[in-house]
Amino acid sequence: MSKHIISAIQGVGHRTLEGIRRLGRATLYFLLVLWKSGTSLKRFGLVVRELYYFGVLSLIIIVVSGLFVGMVLGLQGYETLQKYGSETAVGTMVALSLVRELGPVVAALLFASSAGSAMTVEIGLMKATEQLAAMDMMAVDPVARVVAPRFWAGVISMPLLAAIFSVMGVFGGYLVAVVFIGVDDGSFWSQMQSNVDFRVDILNGFIKSCFFGIAVSAIAVFEGHDSLPTAEGVSVATTRTVVTSSLVILGLDFILTAFMFRGL
């Protein structure tokens, strides 16, 4: 009996140590990527190529999701606000929810599951098929040549995608509230404008999306490069990218919100 308890505790200890070791490896890898980012800046064409694959190709999902999220917010917000006779505040509600939270967070979650997982698969497959090892043997650093450009493309794409998401969302809210339901056009915009603050809301939302971009891209490239070089290893790494980035996005969102809006 005591044997079982001891082995259970050992299991916990083992997993904890393994987790800490992994976190340490990931941190070192992140620093390595930053250290080797010089090539990406000198040859920006490498980053542009990845911007196409991770930024441009994510546009459709971001635009469509943003539109629908905004439309739902408009509808729900109208239903609730009209009970208090302040349905003109629907613009404020839609804009604030999007700019502060939903824009950065939902765009980051979508980005993690589409572009982030693609990044992991690409790097994982390049490792599994010896492409990274071959590059290394050809005296070309794979971290500088393959990993860093993808990382920076992710970091650059994320705030842009989050902004596009928010704008599409506000447009979706406008469509539902003003065009379909008939809330007054003027008060929709003016209430929104007088209540959304540039520094408190928009700048903070932008900073959030920058953090999310760094987190998702760093996790995606680490999982890809750290994956076991087999088909199974790559699939495990992809799942990990999506799960870890989603959790990190939500956790980071809480911490950043606490700092920004409560001044902790």
Partner: peptide, 17 residues
């Protein structure tokens, strides 16, 4: 893509904020 993204940021800052 980059122009659209920056445009969206401007819209957020000027029109919505």
């Amino acid at each position: 893509f980059v122009i659209t993204g920056i445009g969206a940021l401007l819209v957020l800052s000027l029109k919505i904020g």
